[in-house]
């Protein structure tokens, strides 16, 4: 009998209780706003167009990875391999778009679109393999993607011969360094990816399937949903978006680096978790993920501006992750 429906409970709530509820509901968003307001006053450089675009650009890759991660975590999974896929797809695409004859795939440099398509395909295949292991062979997601984390990193080194792939065509580099109406391309890509993901999770049938398959796979299966297929697809999505992130990174740095993307999976998971998505599946919003990624970005930038050493930044980020989940847990208490 601990259930009180909102309609019954609302009348005699004090202002204080309501404020607590509001904080819990929009806590992460409020934290982001508070952070921005504080930094605006603390540092005159913070709220300049240049710096804001800078934050957005720095957030974009993690944001893109975190969006893919959200799909996976919503189905009770986890994808540890995205950092390695960033590197692998980066060198694959770079090898097709390089003008350096020693690193080039025969017949290159190919048009950027071909390099991009190849990169995304490779990412989706890597993700798909993890997905197959999870859905078909019932390997725990943690293990399947841990395997892919190692394998994809190894494949990166094998493919590139341990050396970076330099000198990418300007055409390819545009996706990392160019801009549309003054907005950097990585940010544009993040916005597009977010818009599609938002639509899919909120309005498409597949989105309904993802929430159901994560909330209760047995019930979803009995209701005619092919849960295995959904699992397979979300890992392919995560792999594909990791590839998008990988190519943006390669384009920005101008070369495909074999050491790119190390530990990126942790930031992506952090953004999802800070954004309120439950690791036990079925609960979470894609907007939360975006806010989570932005919060991490703003915090890193702010701490930089205030001259806090990067070592401390890691400690603060760690505390933020745990605090965000504590806030989420308090919501579930009565």
């Amino acid at each position: 009998m601990k259930i009180v429906t909102p309609a019954e409970g609302k009348e005699n709530l004090s202002v204080k209780v309501r404020m607590i509820q509001f904080t819990q509901q929009y806590g992460i968003f409020l934290a982001l706003v508070a952070c921005c307001v504080f930094l605006t006053f603390a540092n005159e450089y913070f709220l300049t167009t240049r710096n804001v675009l800078n934050i957005l650009r720095q957030t974009s890759i993690n944001g893109i990875l975190a969006i893919g991660m959200t799909f996976v975590i919503l189905t009770r999974g986890i994808d540890l391999s995205v950092g390695s896929i960033v590197a692998f797809t980066g060198v694959v695409a770079a090898s097709l778009a390089t003008t350096s004859s020693s690193a080039m795939v025969a017949g290159g440099p190919y048009p950027a679109i071909i390099a991009i398509m190849a990169g995304i395909s490779v990412g989706m295949i890597c993700g798909g393999i993890s997905g197959l292991a999870v859905s078909r062979f019932h390997v725990p997601a943690f293990v399947a993607t841990l395997g892919m984390l190692s394998a994809a990193r190894g494949l990166t080194l094998i493919y590139a011969g341990g050396k970076p792939v330099p000198a990418l065509t300007p055409e390819f580099r545009w996706i990392g360094t160019g801009n549309i109406l003054g907005i950097p391309m990585p940010v544009v890509i993040l916005v597009i990816v977010f818009a599609i993901a938002w639509w899919v999770l909120n309005f498409s049938r597949f989105g309904r399937y993802v929430y159901a398959a994560g909330g209760n796979p047995h019930a979803a299966k009995v209701s005619g949903i092919n849960v295995g297929k959904i699992q397979f697809i979300v890992y392919a999505i995560s792999g594909g978006l990791a590839a998008v992130g990988g190519m943006v990174l390669a384009a920005r740095t101008g070369s495909g680096l074999t050491q790119a993307g190390i530990a990126y999976e942790l930031d992506a998971i952090a953004a999802v978790v800070i954004g309120g998505t439950s690791l036990s599946g079925g609960v979470g919003r894609i907007t939360g993920t975006l806010i989570g990624a932005l919060l991490i970005g703003v915090m890193n930038n702010g701490l930089d501006l205030m001259g806090v050493e990067s070592y401390y930044q890691q400690v603060i980020k760690g505390m933020l992750i745990v605090a965000a989940v504590m806030l989420d847990q308090s919501k579930n208490k009565h």
Binding site: Y211, A212, G215, N216, A219, K221, V222, S278
Partner: peptide, 15 residues
Amino acid sequence: SGLVMSEDVRANICL
């Protein structure tokens, strides 16, 4: 195996 407990009445009815 009947309900998705984390979801609302509408989502469960439509499932």
